[in-house]
Amino acid sequence: MRRDDATPLVLTICLGNICRSPTAEAAIREVAAARGMAVEVRSAGTGGWHVGAPPDERMTAAAAAVDLVLDGAAEQVTAEHLATADLIVAMDRQNLADLERLAASSGATTPIRLFRAFDDASLAAGDLEVPDPYYGGPDGFDHVVALCRAAATGVVAYLAGERDDPGPR
C-alpha cells in the first residue's frame, strides 16, 4: 500500500474519463461492496478536454439500466495519481502506453495493467481492451458495462489476494 491506511486505492483510466473509466470505477465499487471489502476507487482520463464534466449521458443510462450508478466529474490523470495508487487499470493499450510514459517520467512504480486482463475469459481470448463507445460502433455502451463488471470481479479478487497479478500486457 502506498498510503497510511489499509484501504487499497485503484485508479481506472481511459481517454476522457466520461465513459469507460467511470463505469469501471462504479463496477469495482459494486463488487467490493457486495463482498464487504473496503476499496477506494477513482477514475481519470489521459486527456483533459472533459475535466469537470459528468459521465456521458449515454453511458450513465446504460449503467443505470442494470443498477450501476455513475457519478463524479472527469479529471485528468497526474503523476500524483500514479504515486498514491496501489493499482492502476487502463482501458486500452494506448491509455496503458500513455500511463507508462507518465510513470517513467515521474518515477512512479505503481503496477499499471490492462483492466480486462483481470477477466479470465478476456485473458484467454486475448481480447484485453475495453472499446471506446463514445463515437458509436458495434460494441456500444451496454457492452462496455458488461465488460467492466466482468473485469471488476477479477480486480477485487486480486485485491483480496485470491488471484495472481496478470502482469503487464
Rank of each mutant, 00 (worst) to 15 (best):
M1N: 12
M1E: 13
R3M: 13
R3D: 11
D4K: 09
A6P: 12
T7H: 07
P8M: 07
L9P: 05
V10Y: 00
V10P: 00
C14W: 02
L15A: 09
N17K: 01
I18D: 01
R20S: 06
P22W: 02
P22V: 08
P22G: 01
E25S: 15
A26I: 02
A27T: 02
R29S: 11
E30Y: 13
A32G: 14
A34Y: 12
G36F: 12
A38T: 08
A38L: 14
E40L: 12
S43N: 12
A44G: 08
A44K: 01
G45I: 01
T46V: 14
T46F: 05
G47W: 15
G48V: 04
W49S: 13
W49V: 14
W49K: 10
P55V: 13
E57H: 08
E57M: 13
E57Q: 11
R58W: 04
A62V: 09
A63K: 02
A63D: 11
A64N: 15
A64I: 05
V66D: 14
V66F: 10
V66G: 09
D67K: 11
L68E: 05
L68S: 07
L68M: 11
V69N: 09
A73K: 10
A74V: 00
V77I: 14
E80S: 13
E80D: 15
T84N: 10
D86N: 01
V89P: 06
A90Y: 01
M91E: 02
R93I: 03
L96D: 03
A97T: 13
R101P: 09
L102G: 10
L102F: 00
A103V: 03
A104S: 11
S105Y: 12
S105R: 14
S106P: 05
G107L: 02
A108V: 03
A108T: 04
I112T: 05
I112L: 09
I112P: 09
R113V: 07
L114S: 02
R116L: 14
A117P: 10
A117L: 10
A117R: 13
F118K: 06
S122T: 08
L123M: 14
L123R: 15
G126W: 08
L128Y: 03
V130R: 02
V130T: 03
P131E: 10
D132M: 07
D132A: 12
Y134P: 02
G136P: 01
D139F: 15
G140V: 06
D142F: 05
H143F: 15
V145R: 07
V145A: 10
A146P: 11
C148G: 09
R149G: 04
A150E: 13
A150Y: 10
T153I: 11
A157Q: 12
A160T: 06
G161T: 05
D165F: 02
D165K: 05
G167E: 05
P168Y: 11
R169H: 10
